[in-house]
Write a protein that binds this DNA or RNA. Structure first.
Length: 424
DNA sequence: TCTGGGGTCCTAGGACCC
DNA sequence: TCTGGGGTCCTAGGACCC
């Protein structure tokens, strides 16, 4: 039995999502901005061609936007998340053995199809996803996940491949690796690429040829796995069921600097409620939490501040009331007067399954009461939206709510938006 | 004036115990 | 009083991913 993996990813996914429901964007340059409309996080091919780089601050491309009519969007995760779900449901028609790797990427185990016309099957996957969802995708197929990633990447660069590349032949794999820079290999980032270059390891092919001892010494056991995968030896399994998260974090930058404790408290309280909701969704409790507070990374020396404080809970909890109480107390420990703060957040840690939590005799009454309340809140928010019920300490959000000046309608999830678009 | 958010894993080193 | 080795646990930092 020979292994075979496909990786299917959406081309310029966020930009493509914006296009699906607004055909007038076809052929135009599009960029999507991060939270607070801060930096570029997605670009259409046309925007890439104009030289818009990933991660540049929005204010740096203002001139380019004006001159070339670049269409600018605030990120709309409600829309992208829903489109992502549609793509995954389509892919599930092709195999149940599927791993949702990120919002725009899925791995498929195609091992059962080894002796069929893989090229044709991969092509069918691509055209079906486009037909059913409107999202253009690329498909890379190979005996390991890492090689499938290589194939996927090259499939977008070659006009002949046109978004579908199957690498099963030994010589084709060698050719592909020689055409791939080591820094473009899945698992090899900028730091490692630089380190490897010093040893004359420039291409993915070079990396596949290093000794096991070299790989372990310089890239740890993780990098060693990558090397073996490049040689065609599968080391990274398909994860069909996502493992429960060990840390859950919610944080945001403020649209402008904040100085008052009350404003920061409001923001942190809102992050805490969100974070606790994520915690309960995976049916877990947290044994500890860390709150952090920081000024802008770009602040001058002397105006820079970063601090965090960790609180251990008496027993693991998923109650917002308890988490809010602990989070606000932690914030007060690290807040200093006089700084201009840019960001706060909360990290839930020591996460355990909710059904494993030992009830301490002292607090068991509260736990029952709280869990009923939390259940009710979760249902209300599910039905009426996240901001439908909250706490006084969350405030009105005036000072810290995200900037979203270029948000598109939630074409698929929000009734009022759907009606608005239909009327236009 | 404006510069994202949310994760994982591994390793080295210190504290502590026997 | 000093000496030695081995094991475990925790934390900080560094690497990576999208």
């Amino acid at each position: 039995m020979t292994s075979l993996f496909a990786i299917v990813d959406g081309n310029n996914f966020y930009a493509s999502c914006e296009r699906v429901f607004n055909p007038s964007l076809e052929g135009k340059p599009i960029v999507v901005l991060s939270n607070n409309d801060g930096a570029v996080i997605a670009r259409s091919n046309e925007a890439k061609a104009l030289g818009v780089k990933m991660g540049v601050p929005a204010f740096e491309i203002k001139k380019l936007v004006r001159e070339h009519g670049i269409q600018v969007f605030s990120s709309n995760y409600e829309l992208y998340g829903d489109m992502s779900r549609r793509v995954v449901e389509t892919l599930q028609q092709f195999t149940p053995n599927l791993e949702v790797y990120s919002i725009d990427e899925s791995f498929l185990d195609l091992g059962d199809f080894y002796n069929t016309d893989i090229q044709a099957y991969a092509r069918t996957i691509k055209t079906t996803v486009l037909q059913w969802t409107g999202i253009p995708v690329a498909v890379g197929v190979a005996p390991t996940k890492t090689l499938a990633k290589v194939a996927n990447r090259l499939s977008k660069k070659s006009a002949k491949a046109n978004g579908v590349l199957v690498l099963t032949d030994k010589h084709h794999i060698q050719e592909a690796l020689k055409r791939t820079e080591v820094g473009d290999v899945w698992g090899i980032g900028r730091r490692y690429a630089k380190k490897l270059a010093a040893f004359g390891v420039i291409t993915a092919w070079d990396l596949s040829q290093v000794t096991d001892a070299f790989a372990k010494k310089h890239l740890t056991v993780v990098g060693h796995r990558t090397v073996k995968e490049l040689r065609g030896e599968p080391c990274i399994d398909l994860e069909m069921v996502p493992p429960a998260k060990q840390n859950i974090c919610t944080s945001r930058s403020f649209p402008r600097n904040l100085t008052a404790l009350t404003d920061i408290e409001e923001a942190l309280a809102t992050h805490t409620v969100r974070c606790a909701t994520k915690l309960r969704r995976q049916k877990s409790c947290a044994g500890a939490l860390t709150v952090f507070l920081q000024t802008s990374r770009f602040a001058e020396q002397g105006e820079l501040y970063f601090n965090s404080h960790t609180v251990r809970l008496e027993s693991p909890s998923s109650s917002e009331l308890e988490l809010l109480h602990a989070a606000i107390a932690a914030l007060k420990k690290i807040y200093r007067n006089g700084y201009r703060y840019k960001k706060t957040g909360i990290i839930l840690q020591d996460i355990v399954p909710a059904n494993q939590v030992q009830l301490s005799l002292l607090s068991s009454g509260n736990i029952t009461r709280d869990s009923k309340l939390m259940h009710t809140l979760d249902n209300l928010r599910e039905r009426y939206g996240h901001s439908s019920v909250g706490y006084g300490v969350q405030g009105t959000g005036k000072e810290w709510e995200m900037k979203k000046e270029h948000i598109s309608p939630c074409y698929t999830t929000k009734l009022s938006d759907i009606l608005k678009v239909r009327a236009r």
